[in-house]
């Protein structure tokens, strides 16, 4: 079985990962334009080379409180539906439409390594997680000191959309 690669990142409260094929780019969390009267997990918008990217606070998405933006804060920008479609050999296990046509980025505390694992090492989410939270988790990989929680971007985007 082929190895899978994940972009790992820290959000206060844990170590998380997205499938690397979902990620378009990672950019420092600067010049975020706040959204007055914002609703839900929106943190702001940011201009990436003329494209307006919506930044969501991943911690809020996962049910926590707003993150403070620090020098280490980064935005993980995901590919859009059509960008994923252009890659023929990759189909994520959620409805692609959740990614939409306007790029979305997640605000995270800091970005770590690219983690390469065998699919056999990916465990299911423990059954005693809160149901809402559990639906966001695609699997768990044992790493030290913190386990890597692989997130389902579609479920997160779909839940609050």
């Amino acid at each position: 079985m082929k190895h899978q690669q994940f972009v790992s990142f820290q959000v206060p409260g844990g170590l998380f990962g997205f499938d690397i094929r979902l990620v378009k780019e990672i950019t420092p969390a600067v010049h975020i334009t706040p959204v007055p009267l914002k609703v839900g997990d929106v943190s702001g918008v940011v201009n990436i080379r003329g494209q307006v990217v919506v930044v969501l606070d991943l911690r809020v998405s996962l049910g926590g409180s707003e993150q403070q933006i620090t020098d280490d804060s980064q935005i993980i920008i995901l590919k859009t539906t059509s960008e994923i479609e252009a890659v023929s050999d990759y189909t994520p296990n959620f409805d692609l439409d959740y990614l939409g046509s306007i790029p979305v980025g997640f605000l995270v505390g800091s970005v770590g390594d690219i983690v390469t694992v065998e699919p056999s090492r990916i465990e299911d989410a423990p059954s005693h997680l809160l149901a809402q939270y559990r639906s966001y988790v695609e699997g768990v990989v044992r790493l030290d000191p913190l386990p890597l929680v692989i997130l389902n971007a579609g479920a997160i985007l779909g839940a609050t959309a």
Partner: peptide
């Protein structure tokens, strides 16, 4: 165009650079 997440704020018609 606005992302769906921003449409919830209602007062915006769009976004621009």
């Amino acid at each position: 165009p606005l992302h769906d997440k921003l449409k919830a704020s209602k007062v915006y018609a769009g976004v621009t650079v």
